[in-house]
Design a protein around this nucleic acid. Structure first.
Lengths: 182, 182
DNA sequence: GAACAATACGGAGACTGTCTCCGTTTAGCA
DNA sequence: TGCTAAACGGAGACAGTCTCCGTATTGTTC
């Protein structure tokens, strides 16, 4: 690939990331092209559709997920505190872009979604955290189900513009639900 | 209002209901007008924007909410079963239209939403059901928070096309979270 | 039943966003 | 420096939104 093509591609991703954060994944791609200083044809040659641009934008996010998950697994304390803390990290991770929680949670269970492979780092992280807490969970918890529950909270929070303080009590309910079951 | 205008208005609502159920609230209003057999100008004169049409479509839904809530409050059995049963009813109610869970849950906490007054029948119903279970809840539960938690589950289920069987375990976690807290 | 006025209708058009096509431009190599 | 392949970009076809205004129809009065 030519150097100018590489620059354009990176520029488009950078601008898309900023616009997706503010306006969500439905933001105008013409606008992204314009703010990236390229033609619409250029954007569509690099990214044949919206999903492929979203996927490209997520690469940096994947790295961050792996980092945060690593830290969560190193966390110590009462199982409830560990779980609520991880859930709060999880919500923060998927809420980087407006509409992110809904899209990522949906992609997770969708075999056909182009961003599913990238979302798998999340469900893997959830599975690992839950495995570490296995002794405190009365019944084994399906990671996908946990992702959906916490993802649902994140989705509502995203759409209602709730801050972390407003979200935490709901994460506590979910954590209590997992820990107290039997 | 003239009789022909009344007929057109009712026809638009009826067609909108069917289309919103299948395609969600973002469905083309031009298509709604076309299938209702009226001009776009006619649709926009009756409903100046999408929200006002959605609000009109919801009137029948409001009646159904009141009915279902009445039955839930009459329900007897173990607190867990009552709560899970009501949550399942709640999910079914807000999932009548594609995108309904997200939209209704969001509107509930939004002072400026044109459909908020209609959503209040839901949060009132939630408040009443939770009040009846007060002795079993270790701490009083905010109805809006409960609506958001269950609404989050419904939103994820709606977007992933999950059936009631797949949703129920998640509602049980939420119910357990509320009942076992302390 | 006809006339008339007020109310309602409807679809073309301006506008935005999507996405493709193809003439033009440029990078990079020999 | 010249040439070729790769990349660019924006006009245009298309769909959807929403308004405007000429046309149609309803309903009332005589």
């Amino acid at each position: 690939m030519r150097a100018d093509a590489q620059r354009n591609r990176e520029r488009i991703i950078e601008v898309a990331r900023a616009i997706f954060r503010e306006q969500g994944y439905d933001a105008s791609l013409d606008l992204v092209a314009k703010q990236a200083g390229v033609g619409a044809g250029t954007l569509y040659r690099h990214f044949p559709n919206r999903e492929s641009l979203v996927d490209a934008v997520m690469q940096v996010w994947v790295d961050r997920v792996n980092d945060t998950a690593g830290k969560a697994m190193a966390r110590e304390g009462a199982p409830r505190d560990v779980l609520v803390g991880w859930f709060a990290d999880y919500v923060a991770l998927i809420s980087l872009h407006k509409g992110g929680p809904a899209k990522l949670t949906c992609a997770m269970g969708d075999e056909t979604s182009p961003i599913r492979t990238k979302c798998q780092v999340l469900s893997e992280a959830m599975r690992t955290v839950l495995s570490d807490l296995e002794d405190d969970l009365v019944v084994p918890v399906d990671a996908l189900q946990a992702c959906r529950l916490v993802g649902g909270v994140a989705t509502v929070a995203d759409q209602a513009d709730l801050d972390a303080e407003a979200v935490r009590p709901m994460l506590e309910v979910v954590a209590d639900g997992f820990l107290a079951r039997g």
